[in-house]
Amino acid sequence: MGTRLPPLEALRYFECAARHLNFTAAAKELCVSQSAVSQKIILLEAHLQYKVFDRKPRQLHLTENGEELFKSMHQALNQIRDTVNHIESHKQVRQLEVYSMPAFASRWLMPCIHEFYDAHPNIDLNLAANFAEPIYRNEEVDIGICHGKCDQTDMQQELLFRDYIYPVASPELLKKITLNTPEDLNKTTLLHDSLPNAKFGTSWSRWLSELNIEGVSCNSGYSFNQVDLIVQAALNGQGVALGRHALVAKEIENGRLVPLFGHSVEDGGIYVMYLKKLADRPQVSDFISWIKGQSVTFEQQFNVNKLLYRSR
């Protein structure tokens, strides 16, 4: 029968003390008292039935048996540490938390996110679509996709593309009502954002004021508390919406929505942001590279000027 393995805790204390050749230094690393280290070594030597240290005043030396045991223990613990680090590193690479505004997630990100999955099958991406932005310092998420920038100096923030606001309506609605000028909006129903001052919100009064358009009443109509609901109402022919280019460009391209009047207002931009200290994580850099490429493609395929001014 083989010799019974010594207590693993005592072996761990021994490896630390042997590495430092000092019980006080070992106790500091292990966050215990010096006497606790000494007692563990006494326990180990009693189990082994031989000394592992030669104790002299102000000096500590390994015995021949202690030297041999230390080499084995040091190698074994290093191998365990390397294995744990490898597993942890692999785990980190596979997991990615991404925050997005709900409307942007559903109408811009979701139609193309499968391309990221296909290109990076080793990354498990969790997309969190919430109205409230996360607290990045707590690392609730790895990456955020937001309208506008934040004021955190420890954040890396990169512009994906500028955003624009302009009126849109369905072809079915335009068959019923002639909308050639902004003043014609008085003849139809306006679709409102019930949170016009929120990030990614829209405001008819602000749009009209920016373009110095007078004579249009914007005090009535239907209101919605989510931007993508406004877009859906416009698609259903329920009225005219102020569309964000990022959310309606594809619907204009496929003919489901029509831009009106040739007037637009630039309104901030879509940014991707992440803590600077996370920049070297492979899954973070992979996603940033991918979404920047998608943004370039979006701007090339759905140029705001081409879409806005083409004839209906």
Rank of each mutant, 00 (worst) to 15 (best):
Q238V: 05
E172F: 09
P134G: 11
S264P: 02
E299H: 06
F116Q: 03
E140M: 12
P57Y: 10
D142L: 11
Y164L: 05
A234P: 03
D82T: 14
L190T: 02
Q156D: 12
I270N: 02
E266V: 05
H192K: 07
D124C: 09
Q283M: 10
Y164T: 00
C31Q: 14
I165Y: 09
L5S: 12
G239M: 05
N65I: 07
W290D: 08
L160M: 08
Q294K: 15
H20L: 05
E140F: 13
T153Y: 09
A18E: 04
L195C: 10
A169Q: 06
E64V: 14
L278S: 13
E210T: 01
I87Q: 12
W207L: 01
K187N: 12
C31M: 10
A119I: 00
G255K: 01
P121S: 06
N197E: 13
I288L: 13
F302V: 05
Q39W: 05
R244F: 06
V37Q: 03
L257A: 00
N212I: 00
E172W: 06
Q157H: 05
E133P: 02
W290I: 08
V296C: 11
P167K: 01
S72I: 15
C218E: 06
F104H: 06
K149D: 01
Q226W: 01
I143C: 06
Y309K: 13
D193Y: 01
W207Q: 02
Y271P: 07
E88N: 15
V296M: 15
E67N: 14
S220T: 11
S264C: 12
E68M: 14
I288D: 06
I213G: 00
L185A: 05
I80C: 09
F200V: 01
A76F: 15
G243S: 07
S209F: 02
I143E: 03
Y271S: 08
L127C: 01
V98M: 04
W108N: 00
H90K: 13
L247T: 01
A241N: 02
H147A: 12
L60M: 14
S72F: 15
E214A: 05
H61T: 13
R12W: 11
I252D: 01
E97I: 07
P121K: 04
A18W: 02
F200A: 07
H192E: 04
I145E: 03
K175L: 11
I80R: 11
K91V: 13
L257T: 03
S194P: 00
D154H: 14
S33Q: 10
K276V: 04
Q226Y: 09
C218D: 10
P196Y: 09
Y99R: 09
S223C: 01
P282V: 10
G215R: 02
D151I: 12
N138F: 13
V93N: 14
S217Y: 07
Q283P: 08
G221L: 02
E88M: 12
G144V: 14
H263Y: 08
